[in-house]
Computed example of a mutant assay.
Amino acid sequence: MSATALQVISSARAPRSDGVEARQRLLYAALALFAAKGYAKTSTREIARSAGVNISAISYYFGDKAGLYAATFGEPMGGNAGDFVSLYAAPELPIEEALHIYFTRMIEPLKQGEIVRQCIQLHLREMLEPTSQWAKEMERDIKAPHQAIAGVLCRHLGLARADDDVHRLTFAITGLAMQLFVSQDLVDAIRPSLLNTARSVDAWAQRLTGYAIALVEAEVLRRQAAAPAKPASTPPRTRRKKT
């Protein structure tokens, strides 16, 4: 086989870097526009122009506008929530390790700066102007992680199923991570050093794990205090011998 033929085969098998770059430009151009204007008011022509690619690239890489919109929710924030859940929901993990994995992966996107701001803006806009994507986001990225954390807590507390207080505790724990995303601008205004480097984000993961464990320990003590006291056992009565 000639050297020219080998070169052609090699180039055909190798992924094209320009294709990967074009897809990424489309994804992030769409993210910025969808976050700023919403799904209905953003045209595919506008996205393609902003990304500097032909409009046909949208159908090639994402199928259609709806497929591109769906991709802007998952990919910039780290991908499939199901893969994320499987990392910390394993039943053999001690609770502290499970929560540390949860917080580490959950706040990892904060290292991306402006991109994660656009992601939060997109999610908030979707809440206010819901499309068919909202139901998918609710099931995959909101309910599934919540149920997994509730399961971790049930195993630690020795419960067969989550009661109202387990769900309260789950919302409190997951809220520790979510407030960082929602409060980025406040953190930047008050103490920018808390989020301006990858190391500072990693420090948050460590601290949030400790805060969450403190919440869990408080719930353990609350349940112990609320448990009904066991009646003291009385010694068996002895018969008196007749004289």
Rank of each mutant, 00 (worst) to 15 (best):
V187E: 03
I101V: 15
G113V: 11
D165L: 14
P192G: 01
V216P: 06
I101F: 08
T197C: 09
A29D: 02
A12D: 05
D64G: 04
M1Y: 01
G113L: 07
T42Y: 02
L124A: 09
L195I: 14
R13G: 06
V182R: 07
S132F: 11
A89M: 08
E217W: 04
R191S: 14
I120H: 12
R23I: 06
I107C: 09
T42W: 03
T42G: 00
D202K: 08
A218S: 11
S2N: 10
I58G: 04
A98V: 06
A212T: 01
L87P: 00
A189L: 13
I190C: 06
L215K: 02
Y60R: 13
G67P: 07
H156Q: 12
S59A: 15
S17T: 10
S59V: 05
V182Y: 11
C154K: 11
V152R: 08
R13E: 08
R23A: 08
I58Y: 00
L124E: 15
L122F: 05
T104K: 07
P94Q: 07
Q184C: 03
K143Y: 13
A225P: 00
S233V: 15
A232W: 01
Y39Q: 09
M106P: 03
A225V: 04
V85L: 01
A57L: 12
R222S: 14
P231W: 05
L27H: 02
P235E: 15
L68E: 10
A5H: 09
F181S: 10
Q179T: 14
K111E: 08
P145K: 10
A66W: 00
A203K: 06
S86M: 12
Q118L: 14
R140K: 14
D164M: 11
A148R: 08
G158H: 12
H100Y: 07
I213R: 12
L122Y: 04
L26C: 02
P130D: 04
R240A: 08
E219A: 15
E92R: 02
G52H: 11
A71R: 07
A90K: 15
G175D: 03
T72R: 08
E137P: 00
L26M: 12
S200V: 06
G52E: 05
A71C: 01
T243H: 06
A14H: 12
A177M: 11
L159Y: 12
A14I: 06
R45P: 00
P109A: 06
R16I: 00
E96M: 04
L194Y: 10
V216L: 14
V152Q: 10
S233I: 15
P109H: 01
P236Y: 13
A12W: 01
H146F: 05
A172P: 02
K136F: 13
V220I: 13
A51V: 05
C154A: 11
Y61I: 01
L176E: 08
R23N: 01
G38Q: 07
K111L: 01
P76V: 07
S132R: 13
R239W: 13
L215P: 03
K143E: 15
F181Y: 15
R237G: 07
R240Q: 12
V201C: 06
G82I: 00
T243Q: 10
T131C: 03
R237C: 07
P192C: 09
A212D: 01
Y28R: 03
K136G: 06
S56I: 07
M106F: 13
T174C: 05
T131K: 01
Q147T: 13
S193G: 15
P192M: 09
E21Q: 08
R49W: 05
H156S: 11
Q133I: 02
